[in-house]
Nucleic acid binder design. Structure first.
Lengths: 153, 153, 153, 153
DNA sequence: TTTT
DNA sequence: TTTT
């Protein structure tokens, strides 16, 4: 699979609600979560403290959906890495509507539970569902000779 | 200014159209661009090559909007770093609509023109508009003595 | 200030030690922290569980160094956004040595404390030290008319 | 495979030299490239323009190494997504040395050629080497009923 | 709707 | 040297 371009979203925030779990016809799980990020600043005109919260729809597929279902709940803090996806659908008046979500799926999708030193707490990357034949890290341990010599570090 | 959470989008893609430039009442420029990212893969059922393109609305403010207006055009390849923002608005039927955009603004916003070694070609980070008092890189150039000695790595 | 290229590091991990605080001649604070990230997998040859930890040197400057000094300690979980920087120095034998660090500084530098629901817990972006004149979010709230019409979403 | 923490590097820059290709005992390819990122600013003391270039060692494995060998050359502009890895080795005097590299490998590794609309130009994510059973994008295309209804956004 |  |  090839791709042209980069489409990446990174979020760290807290869930506004428990995850909603669905299942696709194939049986695969889908988890919808809503994540808040916020910024606060002092309004220079009025001098008062202000805050703005942004809510993000995040949809997880596959094993990550299962992990979300099992371990995440309202208030959980998570790290999310996914991609933007805008879906077109029609409301009950038959009008086109667009919804943009952060899709966490397949390779490149990551969900890490933060903080909660409870339960198993372990993060997981969705691309890592078939670890069978993959060594996660380089075994190329020879001295970096020619590389070191050539390059003006 | 403090923030709780991380809200970051990174895109690399090509503009579908020339930028649209607006001006706020204050006079500041606003540039809207539409960026395509795509993925292609071989459909395992039919065996044929498929491609899916995602379009991203990106809104740039301030100096970056000016740069976009001046240097970007349909087809330009850009690197974008911004944040997700969902705006609520009402259509002509008075119904609520939501639009999610990637906002590139203020600190943390980055726009880099890619490829084109033409024109000035240089990228720009929006947080770098007031360079007056900022030294971009560490001046802490003393020998890293205790840090290096204490820590094996 | 302009830049050509992108140099960005994102880390989420735990501190291996309390921060080390230094001060530059100018009086500005510098904080050195060491952050662990790890991956675990099942070795397909032996079938046993393995784990590998990577240690990252992170150097924070300015206000973020103060925040690190005050709130971070051994074991703290943090989100870091900075840039790679390789420094050349000479060991006591007069030989060149190179050390690569993640520098969190100025615009683009971010440090967010995670989990710890203790103390003030609030994250902070270093680019946000002079909030005086900056409004963090878009005020451009007019209906997205022409933008919506033109673009095949 | 599980991981605790996030270890991510994103680079956009140009190669300082042609890739160096090696082969592991297993036969797998390894490509070393050196990527420059730079920043320029006006020195507020002297008023003159200054520039600083940072060189990054990047090591690609597997199919991405082959792609690098085939398509990248001195001057090529690339987008890289990998992870930090510090290797310990010994110089000819038997002293420990440490080298930090950006490793692009396995899941999470991405290399995208930029600009050059020549050759096949297409980027590739290393996690996508075994596309056999993976559909890259969501097939969950049913109307987003309950999710959309429940959540105001 | 979260969190501080 | 962290964390699980």
């Amino acid at each position: 699979m090839a791709s042209r371009g980069v489409n990446k979203v990174i979020l760290v925030g807290n869930l506004g609600n428990d995850p909603e779990i669905h299942h696709m016809p194939s049986g695969g799980a889908v988890a919808n979560i809503s994540i808040a990020t916020s910024e606060s600043w002092r309004d220079k005109a009025t001098g008062e403290q202000r805050e703005k919260t942004e809510w993000h729809r995040v949809t997880l597929f596959g094993k990550l959906a299962d992990v979300a279902a099992q371990y995440l709940k309202k208030g959980s803090q998570v790290y999310i890495e996914g991609q933007l996806q805008t879906r077109k659908w029609q409301n009950q008046q038959g009008q086109d509507q667009y919804t943009t979500e952060v899709v966490v799926q397949g390779f490149n999708g990551v969900m890490q539970m933060l903080g909660s030193r409870t339960s198993n707490g372990q993060g997981m990357a969705s691309g890592q569902q078939q670890p069978t034949s993959q060594q996660p890290q380089q075994q190329y341990n020879e001295p970096p000779m020619d590389f070191d010599d050539d390059i003006p570090l």
